[in-house]
Amino acid sequence: MFVINCPYCGEREQSEFKAGGEAHIVRPKQPTELSDDEWAEYLFMRKNIKGIQFERWIHTHGCRKWFNVVRDTSNDKIKAVYKMGEEPPTV
C-alpha cells in the first residue's frame, strides 16, 4: 500500500484515497458536435500506460479534494503530486 502525499493534508495511507483514472482528459466543451468516434475516444479510450502515468486521486476519507498524481505504474512509485488546475510537472 502506498503513502500518498495529499497536497492539502500531507502524507496519508493509500486506503484513505480513491483512484480516478487517467488525468488531463478534458471533457469536450461541445459534446454534441463530436462524431461517435470522437465521443468514444473521450468516454472510453485510455492510454493505460505502463510507466509514468498522470492520474487523478481523491482524498475520500480526508479533505475530499481531487488532485493529480504522477506515478510509475510499473512499480507504483509516486513521483509527484499536484493540485487540479496546476501545470503537470516534468518528471
Binding site: 480513491k18 480516478g20 478534458v26 487540479m84
Partner: peptide, 13 residues
C-alpha cells in the same frame, strides 16, 4: 455525491 464532487472540482472548477 462523489460523482458531483468529481465534476465540480475537475471539470467545472
Amino acid at each position: 455525491l462523489g460523482k458531483l464532487e468529481d465534476y465540480l472540482q475537475t471539470e467545472w472548477p
